[in-house]
Amino acid sequence: MLTGLTIVFIGGDARQVEVIHKCIEMDATVRVVGFESLTPPLTGISHESLTPELLRAADCIVLPVVGCNDQGEVPAPFSSASIQLKKETLAEIREGTPVFTGIAKGYLKRMASEYSFRLIELLERDEVAIYNSIPTAEGAVMMAIQNTKITLHGSNCIVLGIGRTGFTLAKTLQGLGANVQVGLRKEADRARAVQMGWKPFVTTDLSVYHSGIDLIFNTIPTMIITAQIISRLSREAVIIDLASAPGGTDFRFAEKRGIKAILAPGLPGIVAPKTAGIIMANTIIQSLLEECQLRGDE
C-alpha cells in the first residue's frame, strides 16, 4: 500500500485518470492540478492550484505522458486554465523526489539537473514500452483499415524499424495475413526478422524495396520517407507515421502528390486510454513500493 505518500498529479489526459484511480486504491494521498472539468468528477482527491507549497509537500509527482513543452506548458485537457511549470515553482521540489513522465523534453531535463529531482521517463522502460506497443499496433491497424480501400489480408506492408513498437506491429500485420517487409537500421536485426517470417532490408535501401507497397508504417523519428521515396509510391499508398512529432515523413510533399500520410504519435492514449493508463499505473506503483521497501530496510 501507498499509505502516507502524497502524490501530486499535474495535468494529463484519460491515461492519467486511470493512474489516479489506482493510486487512490493503494491509499495514497492524491492531490491534482488541472482536472476540475473532468466528468464525472474525481472523488477521494483534493483539487489544487499549482504552487511552490504543493510541490514542496509532494513525495511523488506525476506529469502527463508528453511532460511539458520547452516553455514549461503542461497539457491539461480537463482544465480551462493553462498550467505552466515555472522555474521558481520547480525549484521547490525536494531533492530526490521522483517525477514521472512519459517522455521528457529539454526544459524538463534541464530543470531536473538544476534542482536535483529524480526524473523518470516511463516510455524509456521496457516494461512500459513493450506493453504500450500493443495498443499502438492496434491503433495503427485501425487507421490502416479506415484509410484504405483494401483488406490488410494480402496487402503489401512495410514497417520501418523493429524496435518495441515496430516488432509488435509487424507481428500483428502478419497475423492478419499481410505480406510484411521490415526496414532495419542494424544488420544484427536481420536474423530475427527472417526467423519471424518477415522480409528484411536495410532502411537505406528503402527506395529499392518500396515498389508495389500498399502501406508504410514508420516508427523511426528521423526523416526517412523522403520526397524521393514518396515520388515513386502509388497514389493509392498510405503512410502511417507512428514516430514522435514531427515524424519521419515529408508530409508536405506527400500532400502535394496526393498521397495520404498521417502523423499518429500517442496512439495508446487515443485508442485505449484505460489500458495505457493501467500500464503506467502499475509501473509507477511498483517503483514507489520498491522505494518504500528500501526506506524500510534502512
Rank of each mutant, 00 (worst) to 15 (best):
F253Q: 05
A254Q: 06
S207M: 07
V180L: 07
L294K: 15
I285W: 14
R295H: 13
I270H: 08
S234E: 05
L242A: 10
S207D: 15
S287A: 11
T172N: 11
T219H: 14
E298T: 06
K256P: 01
L215H: 03
L267G: 09
F251G: 15
P273R: 03
K186L: 03
H210T: 11
L267D: 02
A276G: 04
G248C: 08
S231D: 09
V180N: 10
V182S: 14
G177W: 12
P221K: 06
D250S: 09
K274P: 04
P221S: 10
K186Y: 02
F201C: 07
Q228C: 07
I216F: 10
I229C: 10
R257P: 01
T283Q: 13
R185L: 08
R190V: 14
L288V: 04
R252I: 12
V180E: 10
V180M: 13
V238D: 05
F253K: 00
Q286P: 02
G175S: 14
A245G: 04
Y209R: 13
L206Y: 02
L289N: 12
L215A: 02
I216S: 00
A264W: 10
A261D: 09
A281S: 10
P246C: 12
S244R: 05
N282W: 02
V208Q: 09
S211R: 15
E236Q: 13
G212N: 05
A281T: 10
M196I: 05
I279E: 00
L206P: 02
V202P: 03
T226W: 06
L215Q: 03
I225S: 13
V194R: 04
A227M: 01
A264C: 08
K171Q: 14
R232M: 12
V271E: 08
S234I: 01
P221N: 08
L173D: 11
